[in-house]
Design a binder for these strands. Structure first.
Lengths: 153, 153
DNA sequence: CAGTATATTCGGGAAATGCCGAATATGTCA
DNA sequence: TGACATATTCGGCATTTCCCGAATATACTG
């Protein structure tokens, strides 16, 4: 894809990625951009991606920063230029660690909720759920750690 | 909470749950309903929850079925009545297994994407990412299994 | 079968979201 | 500092999403 716009197959790939991510709350533009960056071997400028994806440059700008926020893309500043390039991050854990944050918050809330629950039944239910989320969260953490270790081996 | 409407603390809990879930694509009504059901010791009727949560009955109906779809709530039909009651499901894995589905689909897509990637760099990147998602997915699966076993111990 | 209780569907309207293009800010070079 | 290149912000518009209440469907009772 490095030269002209995306080929047919690449286009389809991009849209597939978007179709997958959009229902999970990722804005269309950011989702497409992510698929696009996955196909791109080197950092891309805002103008380039806006052109290739046929979106406005402003849209590309905010989409890119959104991806960056979730650590799905990395920004490459350039020496002696205001120009900014983005490439997909090799740290693709972003989405998952984000989910972990949800698990944490939920567990916290449930623990707190167990406090205000009138009946024993609801209380123990909430306690168990909190435990569950924390357990899953921990094992996820462990898996990520293993993966990181494996990679540098 | 079993008798009158939610107390102040309960209301706050409900809204907290909603605040947490809504950004993840869960509609407001369903999110609030989930928080509400967590506090409720026995199955609730549509009318009751609509009244307590001050939402229309139709909204309550679709929200409840949405929760049911994600296995976050269980429907209790009642003998000799069209009436339907809902309670929070003891199978709170729903949200996570849903996330697993995303991981699967993403891994699948990436494997396929590696095929159309022109350059070796992007191809190996996609292959690695696919591997990553599958690894995480497997360890999540294992954790869920352990939890289920532990519970019945 | 008529009548009642209940759930579900559906159309409309309101609010939120996302995207665009113009305007603005910010950094770089000479 | 001025001129330029580039990124970012912002107001408005279009689309989508969501919720409500009325209308409809469905099941149960006598």
């Amino acid at each position: 894809m490095s030269n002209k716009g995306p080929t047919g197959a690449e286009r389809r790939f991009i849209e597939d990625v978007a179709r997958l991510l959009v229902p999970w709350g990722v804005p269309q533009a950011a989702a497409r951009l992510y698929g696009y960056l996955l196909l791109f071997p080197e950092p891309v400028s805002l103008d380039r991606m806006a052109a290739d994806l046929e979106m406005s440059k402003s849209t590309a700008s905010v989409a890119a920063r959104l991806l960056e926020k979730y650590t799905l893309a990395r920004r490459h500043g350039q020496r002696g230029s205001k120009r900014v390039l983005y490439e997909v991050s090799d740290n693709y854990e972003g989405m998952l660690t984000e989910q972990n944050r949800l698990l944490d918050a939920l567990a916290e809330l449930l623990k707190q909720g167990a406090g205000i629950a009138a009946r024993g039944k609801t209380r123990s239910r909430m306690e168990e759920m909190a435990e569950f989320h924390m357990t899953i969260r921990r094992s996820m953490e462990a898996a990520l750690k293993r993966w990181r270790a494996r990679k540098t081996r």
